[in-house]
Amino acid sequence: MSIFEDTLDHYTMHNELTENNIYSKLIFALLAILLNLITGSPIVPLIIFLICSFLILFVAKIPLRFYVTFMAIPIGFAVLSGIFLAFLGTGEQIWSLGFFGIGLTKGGINQALLVFARVLGGVAALGFLILTTPMNRIFAVFHDLHVPAIITDLAILMYRYIFLFLDVTATMYNSQRTRLGYHNYMSWMNCLASLAGMVFIRTWEQGEISYKALASRGYNGRLNMIREGDSISDMSIKDWLLIIIFVVVIAVAIYCLGTANLYPV
């Protein structure tokens, strides 16, 4: 259960870009994700992937080891589904599987490469945002964007409770393990069910207690907090320039490469 010990939260709080203006990071990441999506050629997402990985590893100084484990799961899924998509293409088959008329086609291979590259680029751009930005600053952005207060409040409370209950869950899980839980299928199901049931009851009791705690501090259905955070006008000219250069470079790349394929048709 690696997520209990090794959450992203530690790294979002301790990297070289934590203190940077949230809007610089947010605008860059969202533009990268959008540009990544509108490309027709697998080369552009790969460029985005390289730029974002460079920023994550050498500017934000996230350890390589952590970045590799972070990327491993999405890439694993991307490879699997890429192989699968390669068999779905239309046109002349270059290698046939021998049943149901399924086979590799050039169109299929190119589509698989494009999707694989897009997933790489997209996850790296998303990774840049989530590895460098603490959650509380994202909530400040929610507020600036006039997301309904009820969603923001719900998200803030949920974020707090998730970490409370991850601790509780990890403790219970470890104590079940030390008492020989999870040793076969049936015991796994039983342990998991009692764990989940107990966590639900705990969350419920905690909810009653925390409502009383909030109410005793004047809670009336709204969380009123002092919001402090960066504003979009605080972004430095350097950040704007870097973002504009990035967009221009990618836009030129999209324009020049068109739908160029890695695998010749």
């Binding site: 009820i150 409040d153 719900l154 409370l157 949920m158 409770y161 998730i162 409370l164 209950f165 991850l166 869950t169 989940a196 966590v199 639900f200 969350t203 419920w204 905690q206 909810g207 009653e208 925390s210 409502y211 909030l214 109410a215 809670y219 009336n220 259905g221």
Partner: peptide, 17 residues
């Protein structure tokens, strides 16, 4: 007004599940 904390807890529970 105790509905919101409860909803947040249910969401946290879904996430942990």
């Amino acid at each position: 007004d105790d509905a919101l904390p409860l909803l947040a807890l249910s969401g946290a529970f879904m996430f942990i599940l």
